[in-house]
Design a protein around this nucleic acid. Sequence first.
DNA 1: AAAGGGAGCAACCGCGTCGAC
DNA 2: TGTCGACGCGGTTGCTCCCTT
Length: 309
Amino acid sequence: MGRAPCCDKANVKKGPWSPEEDAQLKVFIEKYGTCGNWIALPQKAGLKRCGKSCRLRWLNYLRPNIKHGEFSDEEDRIICNLYANIGSRWSIIAARLPGRTDNDIKNYWNTKLKKKLISKFTPNYQGKTSPFYPTISHSVLPNLSSLYKDHFNSFYTPTKSLAGIESSSLPQNFLYYNTTIPSFTNQYSYCLQNQEGLMDSHYYFPVKDQNMLIFNGNEASCSSSDGSCSQISYRKDVKQEEMGCFQGFMLDYGNINGDDPLNSFSDDHQKGNGILGNCQLQYDLEEVNELISIGHGCSNNMFFLNYEN
DNA sequence: AAAGGGAGCAACCGCGTCGAC
DNA sequence: TGTCGACGCGGTTGCTCCCTT
């Protein structure tokens, strides 16, 4: 049994609001308020609209002090920072940006800001790759570090053991940072950095596919849905159109959307909180070998190979 | 000049949450 | 304690405008 509709769909108008309807709604709400009941409001206001539609129109367009137009650099920074920490919780992000609505910010992120960020460090990015896997070339890696530093202030140097590893033994070429995501606070997060710049950041990629090369991951947690892991993978079993980009070696970073990067958005805490969420770096075999050597040199018991080819 | 395609954005839909009863 | 209805949120859709061919 489905949910009862909130209004009589046959008798409500849909689609864009006319200036007359806008005026009617605005006048009514300014005079009487919302009466604490959006469902009943359209009838009282003489509008042939669904209550939800009225609410949305008021909140996103008609209410006072709505700010339209270009987002400032400061607003960009706040959005990036919050998105990195809490994911697509647009209403919370909107609460930090006076005059901006969640819908506005969501649209802005999806249509502009995300591309802006990607193109910032991927000069050749055309926005043509998979939404999950924009491709980043190896040559732009040095820029990533500075980009991250622009947006996050929480990098730190561990002074005590992390994930059971003494600080003195922790890899020097990692950047560490705290996460505010409750589910991850008991886990360590890390960004791998070589001498040039940031190469890999935290968490989460499932070992669902066979023939995978896991780089600097943890076998147990990588194969579970709640571990943290970064990896280079070779996914010969995934069709190119599914991946949206290529077959080959890929270093994943920032993918924390859950078990299946193509399908899973199930758990709220797993929703993309990486500023570079779901990006991949593409490497040839030689570069992969180079990365493996970095991994060998910097970590204890954190290297896992499940690599066939 | 017309057609096609993409970007941007307003609006809709469905579901989770919360409060009233 | 359970049920129901309203609200609020995030994802998605579809319309419009503009640019390219």
